[in-house]
Amino acid sequence: MRTILSALALFGLWLLMSGIYKPLVVGLGAASAVFAVYMVRRMDRVDQDHLKIPLNPFRFIAYAIWLLWEVVKSNVTVTKLILAPHLNLRQHLFHVPNTQKSELAEVIFANSITLTPGTITVETEGDAFWVHAVSYDEGDHEALADMDRRVTSIETGAA
C-alpha cells in the first residue's frame, strides 16, 4: 500500500516537473518512479527506518500561517537594526526549553526559531536549545515559549 502510494506520488511529481505529455516521456517517468520505489524497498530491508509524521495537518497549516506572520514581524525588526545609523546590537546566547515529544516536531521548532531573523538555534542538548539572539530583550523568552507551545500543539496526541 505504502509502495503504490509513493510510486504514484513520485509519478505525480514527475508529471508536474516535466510538463511534457508525450507517451515516451510519460512512460519514462512511470518507469523511473517504479524503479526508484523498487530501490527504496530493497534498501528498507537493510535499515528498518520508517518516516512517521505525527502531525495534525490542519493545525500545521494554521501554524505555518502564524509563522509567516512572525517572519514578517521579525524581518521588520532586523531590517531596522541593519539600516539604523548607529548599530545597537544586544547579542545574547540563552537557553530555551522545548516540550515536543517527537524528533520531527523538535526539528520544526528549531527551524522555526532559525527561520525568524534575529534568533538562531545554535546547539541542541536533550530537551533544550541554545538560541543566539542579535537584539535580545527580556520578552524573547516569553515569545519563544509561546512558539514552543504552538509547535507542541500541532503534534497528534496533544491536547
Partner: peptide, 24 residues
C-alpha cells in the same frame, strides 16, 4: 541583508543578516 553582511561587526550577528535574505 547584503548591507547587513558587511556592516555587522562579528560572525554571530552576520548570521542574522544572512537569514533576512534567506527567509523574508
Amino acid at each position: 541583508s547584503g548591507i547587513g553582511m558587511l556592516r555587522f561587526p562579528d560572525f554571530w550577528s552576520r548570521t542574522h543578516a544572512a537569514s533576512v535574505g534567506d527567509s523574508g
